[in-house]
Design a protein around this nucleic acid. Structure first.
Length: 377
DNA sequence: TCCTCTAACACTTTTGAATCGC
DNA sequence: AGCGATTCAAAAGTGTTAGAGG
């Protein structure tokens, strides 16, 4: 199973003792299915195209779950969390900070189309978020995830025990993310290495790879080639390119090179969020023992990653203070709290309170929470 | 001038309806 | 009639590029 790597704790994402308690409430385990592909991109610096009308992710998010209660209903959601409080620009073959992040666009959460479903359903096959789309259109009416171009994000997965998105049992929210899924949202690819990698792996880009990528050469083509029949081999190729479609992980055709490994973002404030996961396997999130952030042993095999818990702050510039990855954030600051009510907690937001996976607040506190501007199309 | 975004392009893949054979 | 496999066309998706706009 080469495409499912061993787990690692995301060292950059805030943990807390509160979060640690949550581990005792279950042993939900989440695995990033196409981890090797993600890592291939992450080594270079993943970029995701966002368009006005919405663009799918590539690689797309595909996960598998275990440890759920087979007959309990769960809702699975994804949202996008800003990595930091900066916007970036591509300059001379590397990303540089271009200033403070712009105010966050309206929050959208993508609800997996199967939600709600029993744990047995979620565990019997991998979950693909292939149809989730990213847009830069803040007025988007299609429910796509709204992001800012030239900003960095990572997807965050929520496993919520609930009969429906409206009857969430707040004691059973567990959140996961994966370090290698950090990406920069762009309206056009900046790093040619990313372009090449995408063309190599994304079947939709075949035309540009095989038919010539030059604009003029395309125009000079004399005739259309006849439509190709879909053959089993074609499907196999597709499997390789889009592992998320598969029930089983596919062999990665990663394009790992030593030079790629050398890619870092030194210009970024000491290179934070650059190399923090480059050499790490972190595509499996397993609730387990509480971990020491700074002393995390990357060599151990299955560590837990309830990922970032920074719900509310990521709608504010406080996000720039989040430890990515080697921040000096005081662990005490990451104490998980119920999300502040948007209308009444500006002060709390400014203090950088973070969301608890397993808190005791009542659902009313959450009713206005960005997480539940969910969408499923 | 530089940077970012958008739309058009040519092509491939996906999807779903129609058809066929058992 | 029902089912599964196959075929086909339309829809949806891709990265590249030039040009617009700030």
């Amino acid at each position: 199973m080469p495409n499912i790597s061993d787990s690692r704790l995301n060292p950059s994402l805030p943990l807390s003792q509160s979060a640690a308690h949550s581990y005792q409430q279950g042993c939900i385990r989440m695995t990033l299915e196409n981890a090797e592909l993600w890592k291939s991109f992450h080594r270079i610096g993943t970029e995701m195209i966002i368009t006005k009308h919405g663009r799918r992710m590539f690689p797309h998010c595909s996960i598998s779950l275990s440890g759920l209660q087979p007959f309990a209903n769960y809702v699975i959601m994804v949202d996008m969390v800003p990595v930091d409080g900066f916007k970036y620009k591509w300059k001379k073959d590397q990303w540089e900070i271009a200033g403070k992040a712009e105010p966050q666009p309206p929050c959208r959460t993508y609800l997996h189309p199967d939600s709600p479903a029993v744990g047995g359903h979620w565990m019997k096959q991998s979950l693909s978020f292939l149809k989730m789309k990213l847009t830069n259109n803040t007025l988007d009416q299609h429910g796509h995830i709204i992001l800012h171009s030239m900003h960095r994000y990572y997807p965050r997965f929520h496993v919520i025990q609930a009969d429906s998105p409206y009857t969430v049992c707040w004691g059973s929210v567990q959140t996961f993310s994966f370090p290698e899924t950090v990406f920069t949202a762009v309206t056009a690819y900046q790093n040619p290495k990313i372009t090449k990698l995408k063309i190599d792996h994304n079947p939709f880009a075949k035309g540009f790879r095989e038919g010539g990528t030059h604009f003029h050469s395309k125009r000079c083509r004399s005739s259309k080639s006849p439509p190709t029949k879909r053959l089993p081999e074609d499907r196999k190729d597709l499997c390789k390119s889009s592992p998320g479609l598969q029930r089983m992980p596919c062999t990665s055709q990663s394009v790992e090179t030593e030079t790629n490994k050398a890619f870092t973002l030194q210009s970024l404030n000491g290179g934070h969020l650059s190399s923090w996961a480059l050499e790490q396997d972190s595509s499996e999130s397993v609730h387990s023992e509480p971990l020491e952030l700074q002393e995390y042993d990357y060599s151990c095999e299955e560590q837990m990653v309830p990922a970032s818990t920074a719900y509310q702050p990521y709608r504010s510039l406080e996000y720039g203070k989040l430890p990515f990855p080697s921040s000096d954030l005081d662990p005490a600051q990451t104490l998980l709290r119920p999300p502040p009510h948007p209308a009444s907690t500006t002060e709390q937001q400014q203090q950088g309170y973070h969301h608890s996976h397993h808190h005791q607040s009542n659902a009313a506190d959450w009713s206005q929470h960005p997480l539940f501007c969910y969408s499923c199309w």
